[in-house]
Amino acid sequence: MGISYFDDTPHVDQVGVEERIARFSTRSIKKTSKMQALKLALNMIDLTTLEGKDTPGKVNQMCYKAMHVCNQLPELPTVAAVCVYPNHVKTARKALNGTEIKVAAVATAFPSGNSTSSIKLEDTQFAVSEGAHEIDMVISRGEFLRGNYNFVFDEIAAIKDACGKARLKVILETGELSTLDNVRKASDLAIQAGADFIKTSTGKIQPAATMPVTLVMLQAIKDHYKKTGKMVGMKPAGGISTAKVAINYLVMLHETLGDSWMTNEWFRFGASSLANDLLMQIGKEQHGIYQSKDYFSND
């Protein structure tokens, strides 16, 4: 072993975390502050398609949606990024050419991470060579749970190297880590190994992102920032499908990390259906009435 990664890792008390979470949902967000929050959340979305049946056609349609989330509503921001498998990176880059929207690729034998390190590296290198701005990797949960922290650390570090200029998001797959103590440990490990972002979930495992898990990860980011002055981003992914929940996350972000993180450079929502609910709420704020779901594209 030799290295201890967890010298500064505090224990986490689930009951206390849940109590804190309850307070975030009682803040009053309406009118101006709601509109701000809705647009910000929209701007923080990584629009995602991660299916076996993905095709260039599907990816192109999603990229168009990323650029024009809703042409009927004025002054909308774009989403932050699209998130695809490595073999669709090129298609996405081409479709998004000339925009500021990033292309993120899941890599490292997503979603299970059960493969050899060389295949994971190759997967990453391929995605980067195809032009991915961001790499969403998964950690080896099996190795983590059996206490092989060196392995997990080295793997993240190696992938980070392979990323070059691309930003690395490290997926902890918290739904498989079982305890908040483990979530905190995995967060600290990933951050020390060089993660630019830490991310809750693949979206393939339930539960995916939850507020307690996200709070623990935000606190890990905060402690790291206090100690080193370096910011790390956060991406809850999966399970956030309504504007109301997204706003609760923003309140949590606001009260935990503060305004510097309130940008898509440092916070993302990994979600696909969230966008339409945000659009519906924005429409409601502008017109005073809800529009039918049929007015919003499902791309």
Partner: peptide, 18 residues
């Protein structure tokens, strides 16, 4: 240095008086 990330910083986001 991270390049070219679109930024929408919300300075001073205030909760609505309620």
């Amino acid at each position: 240095k991270l390049e070219n990330v679109s930024k929408t910083v919300f300075k001073d986001w205030k909760y609505a008086p309620s």
